[in-house]
């Protein structure tokens, strides 16, 4: 069955996916709201930038994050001068990497959901005395709930399967950066196929269940908007 190292990797992965999704919801909601409502001419530049992780090899993203977060990188230098632990090869570094890696999977469904609400319900709420914040909370959020569910599940599931980014900036520290995908890779390298099977199959099952949930909730969803 699962070795204790496998279980550690398993829970570390869940923890990473959970924290990443939470951060992406906090950052992604205002960003998606802005993208849905802004009339800025060059908004498409921002949209293209956010969609980049969909097409880039994760190693490319990981490589630049390594340069950024490493001891000689600007961010790494900053954390070092503040006396903090370096970000590269740490759980915090993984979280930062995952946030970039999964951003389109959270922002795009939210943006779609906000777009679909349209202006009218917000206008009605305004004429009924609701302030902008009030109507965002009482009208926009509940009407966008399908989008939120989709964003949460996709953000979570996509982070679960992360490999390339982790390989570049996380390495293989048990309990710190050794996530499921890395553990599987290691098992295969060591020809421990039974363990690799167990972890892979459970990852497939989990991801499949989550995607079933997304498509059942929201049949029209497309991950990539073209």
């Amino acid at each position: 069955m699962f070795t204790s190292a496998d279980l550690t990797a398993f829970f570390l992965t869940l923890q990473l996916a959970f924290i990443t999704t939470l951060i992406l919801l906090i950052l992604g909601t205002p960003l998606a709201w802005y993208l849905a409502h802004s009339r800025w001419r060059y908004k498409f530049l921002l949209e293209a930038l956010i969609a980049l992780p969909l097409v880039l090899p994760p190693t490319v993203l990981g490589f630049y994050l390594l340069l950024l977060l490493g001891n000689n990188g600007p961010l790494g230098y900053m954390t070092a001068s503040l006396g903090a632990e370096p970000l590269a090869f740490s759980f915090s570094g993984l979280v930062i990497g995952s946030v970039f890696y999964s951003i389109p999977f959270v922002v795009q469904p939210l943006q779609d959901a906000f777009n679909n609400i349209g202006q009218r319900p917000m206008e009605v709420a305004a004429t009924l005395g609701a302030s902008p914040f009030d109507r965002f909370i009482t009208i926009a959020l509940p009407l966008a709930r399908q989008g939120f569910l989709t964003a949460i599940v996709l953000g979570f599931a996509h982070t679960l399967g992360e490999f390339g980014v982790v390989l570049m900036i996380g390495g293989n520290i048990p309990g710190e950066t050794k996530v499921l995908s890395i553990a599987i890779y290691e098992h295969v390298e060591a020809l421990e196929y039974t363990n690799a099977h167990l972890l892979s199959a459970s990852l497939i099952l989990m991801s499949f269940l989550m995607l079933i949930a997304v498509y059942a909730i929201n049949g029209r969803f497309r991950v990539v908007r073209l």
């Binding site: 009605v124 004429t127 009924l128 009030d134």
Partner: peptide, 15 residues
């Protein structure tokens, strides 16, 4: 702003 005006507004579609 609209929410500061004491109005009721009925739109063409019930909305």
């Amino acid at each position: 702003a609209p929410h500061q005006r004491s109005i009721g507004y009925v739109f063409q579609e019930a909305s």
